[in-house]
Design a protein around this nucleic acid. Structure first.
Lengths: 223, 223
DNA sequence: TTTTGTGAACTAGTTCACAGCT
DNA sequence: AGCTGTGAACTAGTTCACAAAA
């Protein structure tokens, strides 16, 4: 059995590491589903195009989960990763903006699969309020978001409003005590240091690709 | 006038740099719309929470666009950036997968605004083929994608298929000569080195946020 | 003076390589 | 033997600080 250095939440973990932990969890889930009992950093690296040393280093940071000479027990490591990622409890997501993107996010199956709970869609347009997405996620008034957020019933705000409304939507969420925001709107918004803002900028992604096409370059996938 | 070192497409430009160029273009477009004629790296940095030295370095890599003592001419620099990003010609995007996400992407206004041409949606489900998105983007058979791609009429493939179909969809696109792929499906797919693959993994994004919530940490926005 | 463009210094992130455990 | 965990070496990315230009 391996249990040694469960790191106290002191040091800063990089965003890239956090993302990789999520990737590792997905790999382990696949192996588990395939009935694989044990694996190693080398085998994970080979199968999923990762670097073995990096996997070991990322994992070792949170404790000694491996067994020397053997590797990692798939199901055990999976459980550890779920705890590390905070997925052992329900993570409640509220979506700001019930446009095309907001509606698509609400019905995105990947979230449900990973255990995220979509609390609802929130918009300001009176004609949308009361209706629901294809899969039955209800659209509420933005005030309802405020109420729920202040009551501590929303963990993550997904912001999918038009660019012009992004700043105020993010400001609102922060004001209600939201500590984690996934922002799909364009622009450079600043948040207090205790709030984690993650930007998914579709225009920037497409324009980067256009740039590499224009240069005739290409290479490594972007994680 | 400034024109000195228009870098030959020799060296490798990092993905982070490419993304920042797109951000700079957006900043300049905003300034231009506001009637601002000149700006400086310092002023851009202050307004949009960037680093002045980095802006200068990124831009200087492609030529001497600035004027010492003055700064940059907004409209001139904007034009340069559009050329550098390959946005001076039409960039044609085909969307693989006409599910919720694919449909939302097809109707996403941000793309149209930036000059991307959405060629169509492509799916395998017979009942979807022939219909169209809310804003009128047609859904075609996947074979039509193959035909168009082989004819060189699609520059970027956006992959929004279910996870299980991602590998084959990306393989198909690569096989048809597509050199740039924006992938929304989960998983670690490998592509040849001359193909640029950019992953937008919503589950990884949400799980990173969950991780930071679980640790009680937070900090800098993620670009 | 102001502000660019850029080498130098620094910081962050990745990979190597091996001691140490099973 | 095999594989982890980790310091050391390396690579990439960012910021500083200043000479050169307008």
């Amino acid at each position: 059995m391996a249990r040694n250095k469960p790191r106290s939440g002191g040091e800063q973990v990089s965003d890239l590491t956090a993302g990789r932990l999520s990737v590792y969890l997905r790999c382990l889930t696949a192996l588990d589903a395939a009935g694989v009992k044990t694996t190693s950093s080398k085998s994970l690296a080979a199968q999923f195009h990762l670097n073995a040393a990096q996997i070991r280093k990322d994992l070792a940071y949170f404790g000694e989960f491996g067994v020397r000479g053997v590797g990692y027990y798939v199901s055990e490591l999976k459980t550890h990763l779920r705890v590390i990622l905070g997925l052992d409890r329900s993570v409640r997501v509220g979506i700001l903006g019930a446009g095309n993107l907001g509606l698509a996010l609400a019905d995105y199956q990947g979230f449900k699969q990973e255990g995220f709970a979509i609390i609802g869609l929130f918009d300001v347009a009176p004609e949308k309020i009361g209706s629901q997405s294809r899969n039955g996620v209800r659209i509420h008034d933005l005030q309802e978001f405020e109420r729920l957020a202040r009551a501590g019933e929303i963990d993550i705000a997904a912001v999918a409003v038009p660019g012009s409304a992004a700043r105020s939507a993010i400001g609102l969420a922060v004001g209600c005590g939201i500590r984690a925001i996934l922002n799909f709107s364009p622009g450079t918004v600043k948040v207090p240091p205790d709030v984690k803002l993650k930007n998914v900028d579709l225009t920037v992604s497409l324009e980067s690709l256009s740039f590499f096409l224009a240069r005739g370059e290409a290479s490594v996938p972007t994680p």
